[in-house]
Design a protein around this nucleic acid. Structure first.
Length: 467
DNA sequence: CGACGGGACGC
DNA sequence: CGACGGGACGC
């Protein structure tokens, strides 16, 4: 079963990354001596002594491949500077450059001590530290946040003191963190002038309630004019998949003082587009409203999307922009430190009326239960349904509407380019109920096959999936 | 039959 | 300074 010691001829990358060491040693040191000294750190898969082609003499260089990066790191940390035989120079031990890189620059230990992880948006830096401290002493933890609103982007860095600690964390932490060695900070990866990062964050992964939503089309809202989506204005656009009335939107946004305008948007035929424009008489109220109500479920199960739209005011001067961001920062700290939170808002008067008429958007013979709230997006997924659509997939918002009604729906994921998708549930029973009710049924003219999903086909890791 | 995404930091 | 070998599954 286990393959032989040689690597396949097709290898271009070392696998796993950072598991191969580059040794500079005295020409008199033999492979056996290296093996004796290095095998105590773990499973050695290969030792290669670089020799002169003609004379077969050692060139004083060797590569040692370990099964795991943590083993290679431990060996590097322990053996660098040691003497392997009487009268020989101390050896040098570096992480080998990956064979594909072509570079022969020494890999600095610094580059091997910082990991990059995906985390729930609710994670604080203390949470990060608590989670990752079991693998070694942490120098610091940083969560990447939107610089304007301060909200987490669900990504973080953890800096350890030693490469072996970072490697151990990558190997042993829950794989949902997708931990990898972070790219060095000084080389800016180029893709980030931050002008559109906000828009990206809001309709890319993470929040299933917004994916595929027409609101994400920035061109509708003057975001394509070069100023980007990080503008802050007194004007907001709220979008809802479920039909909401002017009165409902007004009541919701009027909970925040300072609203001076609220109007539903209608298409050329006079139909409600599920969007409304709101203007406040001051920036702070608008910032607060966006922070509190973007992603808010109203009615339960229907996530509202709230974003700034250009109010036509001139904010082109750097001073004006800075002032605006200052106001935003002050509002943010108020939001975080103040006594009121989203929970307070949800239970406040005016939110208890659950009977909001739904758009005639889902047509089916199935007797559907009422809408239910989605489970938080960072919920542990205990069951997944595999759904086949015939002839074509339903839109994500329709699927959410239908599959949330059995409870604890975490996320809908459609496989791009295929007629299949996954419904993720936090509770197994809810998934089973949905399957029983919907398998073989027709929704909006699309026939559904609804089955339990097979576990993902990944290689077995330390920790097992529990679904 | 019909099968598995997403990821980067104010020097 | 001190950087890249060896060998071959199974249709």
């Amino acid at each position: 079963m286990e393959d032989c010691s040689f690597r396949p001829s097709t290898d271009s990358l070392d696998d796993p990354p950072n598991s191969r060491l580059f040794l500079v040693i005295s020409k008199s040191i033999t492979e056996d001596v290296i093996r004796e000294n290095f095998s105590v750190f773990g499973e050695i898969q290969d030792i290669w002594m670089v020799k002169d082609k003609q004379t077969k003499e050692s060139k004083g260089v060797s590569f040692v491949k370990f099964a795991k990066s943590s083993q290679a790191c431990a060996a590097m940390e322990d053996m660098h500077g040691k003497c392997l035989a009487e009268g020989t120079k101390p050896i040098k031990v570096f992480m080998a450059q990956s064979r594909s890189s072509g570079s022969h620059r020494d890999v600095e230990d610094e580059e091997l001590t910082r990991i990059f992880v995906m985390i729930p948006k609710t994670f604080t830096e203390d949470d990060l530290k608590e989670t990752f401290k079991e693998y070694g002493d942490i120098e610091y933890c940083i969560i990447i946040k939107n610089k304007t609103t301060g909200e987490s982007k669900g990504l973080g860095y953890v800096r350890y003191h030693k490469p072996s600690q970072a490697a151990t964390a990558i190997e042993n932490c829950d794989k949902t963190f997708r931990a990898i060695i972070a790219e060095p900070r000084t080389k800016n990866s180029g893709a980030d002038n931050d002008y559109f990062s906000n828009a990206r964050a809001e309709h890319v992964a993470g929040d299933p309630g917004m994916s595929g939503y027409p609101f994400a089309d920035a061109s509708n809202y003057g975001m394509a004019d070069g100023r980007g989506s990080d503008i802050i204005t007194r004007c907001l656009m709220v979008s809802s998949r479920a039909s909401v009335t002017q009165e409902q939107v007004y009541g919701l946004f009027d909970l925040i003082p300072g609203m001076d305008y609220c109007e539903m948007q209608r298409d050329p035929y006079g139909f409600n587009k599920g969007q409304a424009m709101i203007r406040y008489n001051n920036l702070g109220s608008a910032v607060y409203a966006k922070e509190k109500l973007n992603g808010f479920e109203y009615p339960p199960g229907n996530r509202l999307v709230v974003a700034y739209i250009d109010d036509g005011e001139d904010r082109s001067s750097p001073v004006g922009k800075m002032a605006m961001q200052l106001v935003a920062a002050q509002m943010m700290s108020m939001v975080w430190n103040g006594p009121s939170g989203p929970q307070l808002m949800k239970t406040s008067a005016g939110f208890s009326a659950p009977s909001v008429p739904q758009m005639a958007r889902v047509q089916t013979d199935v007797a559907l239960p009422p809408l239910k709230k989605l489970a938080p997006s960072d919920s542990w997924v205990k069951e997944r349904l595999f759904v086949v659509f015939n002839p074509a997939p339903l839109p994500v918002d329709v699927l959410e509407d239908v599959f949330c009604r059995f409870g604890s729906l975490v996320e809908v994921y459609l496989v791009p380019g295929r007629n299949v998708g996954y419904m993720k549930y936090a509770e197994r029973k809810n998934a089973n109920d949905a399957m029983a009710a919907l398998h073989g049924k027709v929704v909006n003219g699309v026939k559904l096959k609804v089955m339990l999903a097979d576990p993902p086909k990944e290689e077995s890791h330390k920790r097992q999936r529990t679904y």
